[in-house]
Design a protein around this nucleic acid. Structure first.
Length: 239
DNA sequence: GCGACAG
DNA sequence: ATCTTGTCGC
C-alpha cells in the first residue's frame, strides 16, 4: 500500500542508531557513495512543511575529548517540540569532514524528537562539498529525511552575492555547471547565507524551505530554537 | 602581516 | 564553532 509505505518512510525510528564512519578514509568513501545515490526528489506536500532544525555546540575539552550538546527543534519550540543529545567528540574540526564530529550527535538529537519532521535544516554544507556530500546530505541519508544545508559561506563553490538588498534576493552557486547551493538574503539588508541542496532536495526546494521558515530573521526559526536549546543546556551542565 | 575550506 | 572588539538601530 502506497499510504502505509509513505508513513513508514517518513516516520523516524527513534531507537535505531546508524554507524558513522570513524576515520577520514571511511568517511570519504561513504561520501563518494552518497553522492552517487539518486533518491527521488522531495517536495513539500503541504505548505508550509513541518520543518525542524538542529545544532551542536561544544564545551571545554577534557582528557582530549570535547563535550558537545546537540539539539533539534521545530519552530516555536517549547517542551515537546525539541530534543537534546549530549556526548563527547574526539575528532577535530576539518573542512569537508564535519560528519566525523557532528554526525552521531545530530542524529541522536533528531531521533529524540517526539514527531518526525517533514524536512530538516542542517547547519552544514550539502552538495557544495569536495565530494558533493556534506553533512547535510549525509545526515539526511542516515535519517531517511529530506534535508537542506545552511552555512555562512560556501565550502567549495564561489560566486557573487546577490546585489539586491531585499529579502529573497539570491544568486545560484555551481560546481562544474551543476547548481549546488545559492547565496540567499534571508533578511532585508542582512548578509546572505548559503542555502545548499541536500538529501532529496534541489537548490530551489532548499531555498523555499529556508525562506519559509525565517520569519523576518536572518536564520530559520527551527535553527535558532535548536541553537538556543543546545547552548542553554550547555550552560546548565557547565555550571 | 594574516587568512581566504562548513561548524 | 568560539572569542572579542566595534558599530548600528530601536
Amino acid at each position: 500500500m502506497a499510504f502505509r509505505q509513505a508513513i513508514q518512510q517518513s516516520a523516524l525510528d527513534r531507537r535505531e542508531t546508524a554507524l558513522w564512519p570513524r576515520t577520514r578514509e571511511e568517511l570519504e568513501v561513504r561520501q563518494a557513495a552518497l553522492a552517487g545515490r539518486r533518491e527521488p526528489p522531495w517536495r513539500p506536500s503541504v505548505e508550509p512543511a513541518a520543518t525542524a532544525g538542529c545544532a551542536v555546540c561544544f564545551g571545554p575539552a577534557e582528557a582530549g575529548r570535547e563535550r558537545a550538546w546537540a539539539a533539534a527543534a521545530f519552530a516555536g519550540a517549547t517542551r515537546g517540540r525539541r530534543a537534546l543529545a549530549v556526548g563527547q567528540v574526539d575528532a577535530e574540526y576539518e573542512p569537508g569532514l564535519m560528519a566525523l564530529r557532528e554526525g552521531p550527535l545530530l542524529e541522536a538529537a533528531v531521533r529524540a524528537l517526539p514527531q518526525a519532521p517533514e524536512v530538516l535544516i542542517v547547519p552544514a554544507a550539502g552538495r557544495d562539498h569536495p565530494r558533493r556530500a556534506g553533512l547535510a546530505v549525509h545526515l539526511g541519508a542516515v535519517l531517511g529525511l529530506p534535508t537542506v544545508g545552511l552555512t555562512r559561506r560556501p565550502l567549495v563553490a564561489s560566486g557573487p552575492m546577490p546585489k539586491a538588498a531585499a529579502a529573497g534576493s539570491l544568486s545560484v552557486l555551481m560546481i562544474d555547471g551543476e547548481p549546488v547551493a545559492a547565496w540567499v538574503r534571508t533578511r532585508a539588508g542582512a548578509r546572505p547565507l548559503v542555502v545548499h541542496a541536500g538529501w532529496r532536495t534541489s537548490v530551489q526546494t532548499a531555498i523555499e524551505v529556508v525562506l519559509a521558515s525565517c520569519a523576518g530573521r536572518r536564520f530559520p526559526e527551527p535553527i535558532r530554537e535548536a541553537r538556543e536549546a543546545a547552548r542553554r543546556e550547555r550552560s546548565r551542565a557547565l555550571r
